[in-house]
Nucleic acid binder design. Structure first.
Length: 262
DNA sequence: CGGCTTTGACCCGCGC
DNA sequence: GCGCGGGTCAAAGCCG
């Protein structure tokens, strides 16, 4: 994980509040998944631009964290349909301290084959049709960005190889599948355009990078800044209390502002 | 020539 | 059992 902390900086009050609102461990995990250190956001960014928090996506209730650390109803951000697959009545997840590997058991079972394919594709696809239903699989942390952009595949600093594309039902835009090109890093991401708002690109990351970000040049970041407006939507599947999905919407300018100071 | 995208085929889970 | 949809593979082609 790239270490991009600001020397001598401490998280701002609003940052801390946002972290508390998400649950401290979840916030840390969020930052880990983003590939940045929590302290990256230290220089009072959240004081000026508090994050939006989607608390209970089951009821499509969107809450916003204001600068006084209260939850207020926010403008109508809609729930991302695909997230509903993560919503069930599973018992509350118990995130461990090192990662947000807290997908439900059911989802873990669903991902079982995929993970096996990641580890050894030959054993699953060509040979291994002997599914081990009850075998516990390592849970894969996932999160998604909703990005307002005309460009589907945003430059996030990592190198990706496209390995598939599928048409999406009831959506004129296809879904693209990418895999991190770094050897041994099994991180995948799906990129699709929202059918409700075609200006919004939904990028779903799966897994955590096991290597530092290969591209940290300022030019790359600035390029991304030009593409992304105006917010980033992040979800923690099954991380919320009672198994509910918990989402965070981080305005993109916050992300960019933070990156700009690296 | 290596890395990447494209694209049709294939596999699998799930609902009916 | 069958059809459908999601996800992945892998060959072919493109490009720098």
């Amino acid at each position: 994980m790239a270490d991009m902390r600001f020397p001598g900086e401490n998280p701002s009050a609003a940052t801390t509040a946002a972290a508390e609102a998400c649950g401290g461990d979840k916030w840390d995990s969020f930052m880990d998944l983003l590939g940045v250190h929590q302290d990256l956001f230290a220089p009072s960014i959240f004081d000026s631009y508090p994050p939006l928090i989607l608390e209970d996506i089951l009821h499509e209730e969107v809450l916003q964290l204001d600068t006084k650390h209260k939850f207020l109803p926010s403008p109508p951000f809609s729930a991302v349909p695909e997230y509903s697959e993560c919503l069930n009545n599973n018992p509350p997840a118990t995130p461990n301290s090192s990662s947000i590997s807290s997908l439900s058991n059911e989802e873990a079972a669903n991902d079982e084959q995929q993970t096996k394919a990641d580890e050894d594709p030959d054993k699953t696809r060509k040979v291994g049709k002997s599914k081990k239903k009850n075998q516990r699989k390592e849970r894969v942390p996932r999160f998604a960005f909703m990005t307002k952009s005309e460009i589907d595949h945003l430059d996030d600093g990592y190198r990706w190889r496209k390995y598939g594309q599928k048409p999406v039902k009831n959506c004129p835009f296809p879904r693209s599948y990418y895999r991190c090109t770094n050897g041994g890093c099994g991180v995948k991401k799906r990129v699709e355009r929202s059918s409700d708002d075609t200006t919004i690109v939904v990028t779903t990351y799966e897994g955590q990078h096991t290597h530092p970000c290969p591209i940290t040049s300022r030019g790359s970041i600035e390029f991304a800044q030009q593409q992304v407006q105006p917010y980033i939507h992040t979800s923690f599947p099954s991380l919320g209390d009672h198994g509910l999905l918990q989402d965070i919407v981080v305005p993109t300018h916050m992300m960019n502002q933070a990156k700009d100071q690296v």
